[in-house]
Each structure stands twice: as C-alpha cells, then as structure tokens.
Design a protein around this nucleic acid. Structure first.
Lengths: 413, 413
DNA sequence: GATTTTTTTCTCGACAGTCGAGAAATTTAG
DNA sequence: CTAAATTTCTCGACTGTCGAGAAAAAAATC
C-alpha cells in the first residue's frame, strides 16, 4: 500500500491484459480480445490502436472470411518487436537459444563445458563469446535483444541476477548483470532451474484447471536436488520461488554434502549420495564431482533384482526426499508435487521411501498424501519456464514504456 | 492477471490509501493527507468529502490555531463507524475485547476455561454467550459490529474461518462462520496466534525501517510452538502466513507429540517435552495435557546451577528449534527472527542449542546467522496483530462498499 | 484598525480513461 | 438486389486525477 493509483495505471494494466491474452491464445480478433479481457469493445479499440502505433502488434492480413458478416481481422504480436536470448547452464553444457517476441525459436546451439576447467573467468569469457556469436548469426541489431534470461542450478539472489552458490562454481559468485552490462543493453534475469520448471507447470496447470489452480511444487532429481514452488496470490498472479531445498538440513551432522555442510538432503538423495550409500563408502567421503548416469543405472538394475545394499541406497534417498517434502508442506500448504529431472527413471525405487517419509508427518496425517506426478521431459519445461517468465516481463515493460513514450510525445508538443 | 482495471478501482485504491494513512498516523489535516498519500490536494478533497458523507471520517472541531495562516482542520476516523470484537483463545482462558473503529479498547473481560471440560459444544455455547454479553453491555446495535476476529493456537484454514486442529480441541474442527452466522451479520475471521504476532511485528518493523522491511519470522515458545512469517510482496503489501512449524518433522520416528505424530518439533521443544526429557521419561509417553509453569521454572533453576539432565533438556529443545528454523530459512530467505511467548524466560538455556542447530545448515553457513530478537510481551503483540489485520480488512470493505453505495444512489436517481 | 503575509482548504477547467449504444463496414443468404 | 448477420469503429457520457489559482482565516506589520 505505497503507490497511489491513477488512470494511467489503469491503462497500463488493461494494456497488459490485452498483451497477455494475445500471448496466451495467439492471434485474436477484436471481439475475442473483448471477451477474454472483459474490456468493452471501445476500450479494446483504443488499446489496440495504441499498441499498433507503437509497433507491438499488427493486423494480420485478413483471412478468408469464414462465416457471414464482416470478416474479423486478427491482431497478432509483431515478431520483430524484440528478441530474447535464453541461456540454460547445466553441469555439462550451456545451451543458447534465440527467441522472437512471439516465443518462436529462431536459433539454438549448445556449448559443451569441460568438467576439468571450471574457472568462473573461463566460463564468463565463453558466455560473452557465445552471446556475441548468436547475435552475429541472426544479424539482428544488438538493441533489439530486449532480455537475456539465464538459468542454472543452485542458489540465486532474490532480486539481482547474481548466482550465489552453484554446484558447478561453488561459492564463486557470478553477477551476470555486471558481466554483461558493457556489451548488452538488454535486461539480464537469472532464475534457478527448478523455479522455471515450476513457472511452466504453474501456467500449464492454470490453463488446465481454468483458474482453479492454487499451488504446486516441482521437484527435480539428479546429481543435485532442486525444488520450485508456484502459488497464486490473492490477485491471481503467480508467485514463484526456489527454496534451497537440496541443501535443507535432513539429518544434523549427517553425510557430507558437496556444499561443504553436513546432512543436506542432497547428501542423501543426490546421485553421488546414492552411489555413496550403494558402495557403502563412509558418509564423510568427499562427494564425487560427477557421476555418469550409467553407474547409477547399474545400481538401479541390481536394486530392481533385489540387491539389498542398492535397494537401501534408493530407499534412503526416498526417505530424505519424503521427509524434506513433508517439511515443505508443513511450512506451506498441501499442494501437488511434480517430480522431474533425470532421477525420475528411478522413481519406482524411490517412491517407497518417499511415501514413508511423507506419511509420518503431522500435515500428511491431517490432510492426506499429496498428489505425486511424474514428468520425464525436464528440459522442455525449463525452456517453457524461461519463455513464460521472460516474455511476460517484457510485456510488462512494454506497457510501462508505452506510458513513457506518451509522456515524451506530450512534452514535445 | 484476471481482473480488468477501471477508474472506480483507482478511486477505491486511493480511498484505501487515505484511510490507511489516517489509521497509521492518527488525525491528519488535508495537507498532511496529501503529503502521505502523494495524491494531489484536489483529489484529497474529493475523497475526504465522500468519506465524510458516508460517515466514515469527520472533521475534528478545529484546534487552537498553532501557527499563522488558515488553521488546519483535522480529519479523523469516526469512532462510531463500526465496531470489532476480538476473541483471543488461549489454553486456560478466552479473552473478549470490544474495540471501536479507531482501535480504541471499549470493553474487555476474560472467561476462564476449565481444563477438564474441553468439549467443543460446551466451548461454542460459552462463546456465543460471551459474545452476546459483550454486545449487551455496550448497548450497541448488533449490526454495528462489523467483524469478529478470533485467534487460537493451532492449524487454521487458509481461506475460511475454520480451526482445523488445535492443542485444545485436537482434531475436532470448529467452523466459526457456521457457528455464528445465525446470530451475527459481522464478518468472522480466524487467525493463528503467532500469525498475528507476525502481523504486528511486520507493521512495527515497517514503520521502524521506513519501508525497507523485507521479511520477518515470529517464533512463539510455550506449551506448544508457533511460527508466523510476514513478508512484503513486490507491491508493498504484507503477506502473512502461519506455517505448521510446531508439527514440522524434527526427527523421523522421534518422540511422541500431542498431535499423535512422532518426532514433531513440539515434541522436543514444547514445555511438556522439556519436562519429559528432564525427568528422563520415555519419549513415547503420552504428553501431559498441561504443565504448570512453576514446574518448568524449577527445572530451569536447576539447569542454571548446572544440573546435567536439565541442561540437556533445554539444549535439546533449542536444537530442535534451531534445526527447524534453519529449515525455514532454507525454504524462504534470510530474515530476522523474533522470539516470544512464555518460553522466552528460558532463552538463556535455549540459545546454545538453537545457535548450534542453526549454524550447521548450508543457508546459515552461506548467509550468516540470522538476527535473533527477544520480545517478552506476547499478548500485546497478539492483540495488536488482531487490530492491524481486522481494521485494515474493514477499511478495505468500506472503500468497496462505498462504490456499491454510489451505484445504489445512481440507480435510484 | 487596516493591510499584508502566510498557510490551508476549496473549486474550476483540462485531461485521461472506460463504457454503452449505435453507426459503419462487409460478407452471406435468399 | 435486399435483408440479415457479424464485426469493427465512433461518439457522447461519466468518472477520476491533476494543476492552478481563488477563497478563507489567522498572524504579522504598519
């Protein structure tokens, strides 16, 4: 309750409403826009005229008349209104994608990252390089790139695009804004990978349940463990957050984690932890930097054939996840949990422990087991999350900029 | 992003702004209102005129002119605009307070609750009775009571005034709206006690830091353990939530808790749990319903003199709290923690364990120890929280109703 | 005591935004 | 070729905010 309201703000909000309808449902006619936004036809006229003048949207050449009556003219977003570069940093590679304003993929390549050289400086140099390359290949003027959206596993600052801690670079922070400021005028945003998964799921669920969506958690299983939570606030906006779940305390004084602390959930449920338990290595052994998935597959095969030690390894991982999730539910509310990431292939081995870990807690006893869903294709969700988040931020900027433009025009006259 | 915006909404928001300025800073003159709200003088005129016509605010008889120039006329809230009944349910008593629209206490009494008869029906009958009594004593017409704000320890539904679980009534739910609907037209709201503490602290902190406030947690120590979290969202509103902290899993398969589950934080840090450890009673003993504080004081005295078993009891409680808090911080962000409730008198004995429990976790290693503050007077905070929450909801209703009134007027003409 | 200064409140006209109603446009059906 | 249907556009009414300046009222000054 700080900011006063004004008629300009009203216009901004309603313009944003129009843009988001267009983003969600593709090209729309005047009438449809009016239906979706609940704005009157007259208002839609004014807003679309404004946006058209600002070159944000355009009238599609009118399609063959489909019914009788005056044929509808469709408004659609202008592809060339601006561009977005998506950077997905994973443990073994970095993927760069160029996307236009409508969300269409225009170019993409992947740079392998050598495990050996993990220096931040090296990485940053590679990043600058690759960004320059993707921009050059597209032959777009640089200032047409409105945003660079980056994701990584690890701990991300809440307000600035700073990577505080990551499984790859440890405590060597990276301030992406500082690093890219001199070369790019684009806005830089950074998000935890699983946060973006949650963002994508939240939108899917919102469409699926037609607005009855409340909250949802995304759990990503892999070498490290990620959690993203998406909730609808009282105004209908989606609040996404990426708790530091993988490094939440599981057992005080427990197994040594990659982060240097002891007893983190990841130190029980991460790939390296499962390996450690399976081979009965002492819990204070320094974790492996990288575990080929084939190694884990072998353990899984053995576990599925009843290998005791290996069954136990997955069970313990499941327990750590289940107990951790029960704690999450205690601190929030009951919500469905979507499980994704490379680790879902062991879901059959993990589920028993997870269920047990969940079942014991007061929340679950009270409100029942949360719904658990499995989604295999994580990379797609991550990319979708990038688009959702970045493009809707761009839309918001545009409507704000619109106001600024009007102001300039007024001052000129 | 569902609702469209309109000029009426602008008026509502700005009216709310005026009311909240008046609530925060007491009677204000036209100019001051304009300063606080950043609204133009003209707008303030229109809004105050409206509110005055609707009998929400009034011009105070002008005070002795203090400087030169036209003397300022102060606007103040009208006391008789509406009333609020606050019901604070604690383990041994229920306190009823009647408050006017400005937040001034008008009447208050306390009903002892016998420990023996804890039937929900009995309790509800007593509640209806007491509410009738406080209304009768004030001689106010019933429809002037706009809201009944109830608080209890335990688990409260997020959207409806339903007590899902409480240390007093266990799983016997109470739907306060259903119970009071036939006798009261007032809106019924229910909040967890520590949630209200957090609400009060949030407002205090917001004023203290002049808007730089981000987030804060309130931890209430007593027979049971409560946690409230208050955060400022991107729009500056305070989001308060009451996680089920006391019954978050501390140790799987651990000590038996009053809730029936095993290993809850409360089963280690609640008064009964401290007693249990101190007397070396098996952890699966059914917890005492009530522990006189004198009992705990004795243990504390002995602990302060070095009694090993008793030191351990408090240390274990502290550890449970510390580990639990570290988990909360993992799932949210770093925030100051205010400790309150009857248990703070043992803070000296708890702090060591708490610090240790906190220190081990990844978040604390990364971001440092959170600030811990102690506030002794919990009941005042609870009452303040009631007022903050209830009165600001009332203000919001009023500005909405204002619009409805205009509509009626229009339809009549 | 009359005039000026200062401070506060009120009022007026301009402007931005939304809305409902109906006009205009444009196609199909008959 | 006319009528019906459907979509888009335009106009006037209304609400809300704002800046500027008028009006009010007391203190300071002559």
């Amino acid at each position: 309750m700080l900011a006063k309201s004004s008629t300009e703000l009203v216009r901004q909000k309603n313009s944003a409403l129009v843009l988001s309808a267009l983003r969600r449902h593709g090209p729309l006619a005047h009438t449809e826009l009016s239906d979706f936004t609940k704005l009157s036809s007259a208002t839609v006229s004014v807003i679309t005229a404004d946006l058209e003048r600002a070159q944000i949207i355009e009238k599609a050449e009118q399609q063959a008349a489909s019914g009788r009556g005056r044929p509808r003219v469709l408004f659609s977003q202008r592809r060339d209104c601006g561009y977005l570069i998506v950077v997905v940093i994973s443990s073994d590679a970095v993927q760069y994608s160029l996307v236009d304003y409508t969300g269409r993929l225009m170019d993409r390549f992947t740079e392998e990252r050598q495990q050996s050289v993990a220096g931040v400086d090296r990485f940053v140099a590679g990043l600058r390089d690759a960004l320059n390359r993707i921009a050059a290949r597209s032959q777009l003027p640089r200032d047409k790139v409105l945003m660079i959206s980056i994701s990584s596993k690890g701990l991300v600052d809440a307000s600035e695009p700073v990577l505080r801690w990551s499984p790859i670079f440890g405590r060597d922070e990276i301030d992406f804004a500082a690093v890219l400021r001199d070369e790019w005028s684009a806005q830089i945003i950074l998000g935890n990978e699983t946060l973006l998964v949650a963002a994508a799921l939240g939108r899917q669920e919102d469409i699926r349940t037609r607005g009855n969506f409340r909250a949802m958690a995304a759990l990503s299983l892999g070498h490290s463990i990620g959690l993203g939570i998406v909730r609808r606030d009282h105004e209908g906006n989606h609040q996404i957050s990426a708790p530091n779940f993988g490094h939440m305390m599981h057992v005080p004084g427990g197994g040594l984690c990659r982060c240097g602390a002891r007893g983190c959930i990841e130190a029980y449920a991460g790939f390296y932890a499962i390996l450690r338990t399976a081979f009965d290595v002492p819990l204070d052994t320094i974790p492996a930097k990288f575990v080929p998935i084939a190694e884990l597959d072998k353990i899984a095969v053995s576990a599925r054939q009843g290998g005791r030690r290996n069954v136990l390894a997955f069970r313990q991982a499941g327990l750590a996840l289940g107990t951790g999730l029960s704690r999450v539910l205690s601190l929030h509310e009951r919500m469905p949990i979507v499980i994704t990431g490379p680790g879902v292939r062991y879901y059959d081995l993990l589920i028993e422990g997870m269920t047990e870990g969940l079942a014991e807690s007061h929340v679950v006893r009270m409100e029942g087991m949360p719904e658990l869903r499995v989604i295999v294709d994580e990379p797609t969700l991550v990319f979708e999350g990038h688009l959702n988040r970045a493009l809707s931020i761009i839309d918001n900027h545009i409507v704000r900029r619109g106001a600024a433009v009007m102001e300039l025009r007024d001052r000129a006259s």
